[in-house]
Design a protein around this nucleic acid. Sequence first.
DNA 1: TTGAAAGCGCTAACAC
DNA 2: GTGTTAGCGCTTTCAA
Lengths: 355, 355
Amino acid sequence: METGAGDSNEVIGGTDASTPAVEVRTLADLARVAGVSAGTVSRALAGKALVNAETRERIQTLARHYGFRPNQMASKLRSRRTGVIGVVIPLGHEKRQSISDPFFLTLLGHLADQLTESGYDLMLSRAIPDGTSDWLERITGSGMVDGVLVIGQSDQSGIIDQVAANYRPLVVWGNYREGQVHCVVGTDNEMGGRLAAEHLIASGAKRLAFLGDTTGIEIDMRHRGAASAAKAAGLPLAHIPINLATTEMGPQIKAALAMPDIDYDGFVCASDLIAMSALRVLYETGRAVPDDAQVVGFDDLPMAAQTMPPLTTIRQEIAGGARVMVENLKARIEGESTDSLAMPPSLIVRRTTRA
Amino acid sequence: METGAGDSNEVIGGTDASTPAVEVRTLADLARVAGVSAGTVSRALAGKALVNAETRERIQTLARHYGFRPNQMASKLRSRRTGVIGVVIPLGHEKRQSISDPFFLTLLGHLADQLTESGYDLMLSRAIPDGTSDWLERITGSGMVDGVLVIGQSDQSGIIDQVAANYRPLVVWGNYREGQVHCVVGTDNEMGGRLAAEHLIASGAKRLAFLGDTTGIEIDMRHRGAASAAKAAGLPLAHIPINLATTEMGPQIKAALAMPDIDYDGFVCASDLIAMSALRVLYETGRAVPDDAQVVGFDDLPMAAQTMPPLTTIRQEIAGGARVMVENLKARIEGESTDSLAMPPSLIVRRTTRA
DNA sequence: TTGAAAGCGCTAACAC
DNA sequence: GTGTTAGCGCTTTCAA
């Protein structure tokens, strides 16, 4: 017998189209209502050509009417295509448990835009490396994603290489290094560091300091670039590691500047954030920028244009980088191979250097 | 016969445990290798108690050895629990296509932390509302997520309410409003706006202006709060809408300040970012802060402490808010109901006001 | 053009 | 404790 007792109550409600009487939760439900088979509904909803235009129309209308949405889990399982890209931020050497680097967050925003554009969903994971490759393989091997994007190599380059050997659809934001297996997109950090130091030197700085922790390869390369420029000019370059994890950086910078016998007059900063902090400390200790000391940042985030004075900095192409990452990932998902890319950064001269 | 031709090459390599000869891709494969049934493997890997400790150990070792990871799609489909939370950012009235608001990005970072902590994965969607509830229902109805977090109501409060009526595990960051159906967590924006204006007034400001676009409810409430404080003091409050979408905001602020006969001496800004821009314009037009004009921001992002002078601002509890959002969502997933929460903001006095 | 049937890989009753 | 059996809800041959 077809007469379910439960239906009668709902029917009393009348003709209100917004609360259909029967619940349509699965393809089979909708098929029953439409008087066709589940297969046909599937084809109709997918907009496939092999189904009668009229039937398709009718089924789509019905689906809309019942507010039916196919279960993605089932669909993905069956079709073996998830339409999801995993995005991982390894917290690496920075021990703090939080995703808060504004550069990474901005890159993430752009990646989200690009992926959405390409019809992919984005699954975000925060990973805390533990010496094994587990943090990455948990994502690549989950069957949940068609590909993986890693934001920042941190100090995990070797482990990423290892995973990339067996997992093709993987693209990383970071610093390319000779012999590296995985596909990386990023800025030529060494060149960036060099540009910064050269500009400082050309503007008359004599006692240079690099502000930033060099555990991660990106920052390390920026330091190397700055060091090579300093060396070429026969100038010293002090290295002041800034620990972003434990405390505020203001006090750390202040402590470094309080060193008795050194009075730096040129600062290469590993990020705009550090530069901003340096500006503050310089101001508080009564040193005028750019007259007494000059400062160059790195990233060119929106905030760089708003500091006082506006920050001279090294610009990384975030939006362009995100686009290339997604393009490369799509190519790799298609089985193609892609080259790594080190984009040349550019010097943006504002007012914290004497141009 | 077990001697697949393809295997011989690998075996030549010798005893290298890292490249097993047979491929173990499914539970069934591993079950075969272990000489048990798929059910047992499933239980062993899930760490269930009902399986012999020894067998469990052996199976887990085997799984590790073969680098086997269960397919999540299948698991989630079967168990009807996805372990994924959808996070949606409606781009709403801001027509720009990009997720770039630093406040939202920061909140996102904290949500990612909290969700990871609770064992959930995070699926990020950028949504562009189109007048229907489709942008949200696409997520809630996908079968891909156990719950949904919406970052910012924008001007979609009504639509969110509509969806929330039929979808319980939904929590929104935004501004609570009387009679609202959906569970919202956020700052008491009206109070924040009031606090800002009152402080300005107490510090001697007489010609107030509110900087920010009030299409979204959050900002609108901040404006109302400021307006009520101004009214109580018998002072005027000009409203200068800042369009974050089309152009840089610097020029817009500059244009507003160039108005012939008004010389504002107190600015309530809808965000720290706007405040930072205002500071810059004030500086460029030769007005001293806080002597000639005072400025109060909103959010208290890290950058607020680094502006010059350091920004007086209204602090929103981002980390705490993220925690409550996730807690509430978990409760709702468990079928409980939760109340909305409007957290009182606090005034952080720095140097852009005359205390 | 449509229907029927066979799974995708896993989990959860239910037996033994 | 462990194996067996039935699906989760969908897509996709294969026939008709």
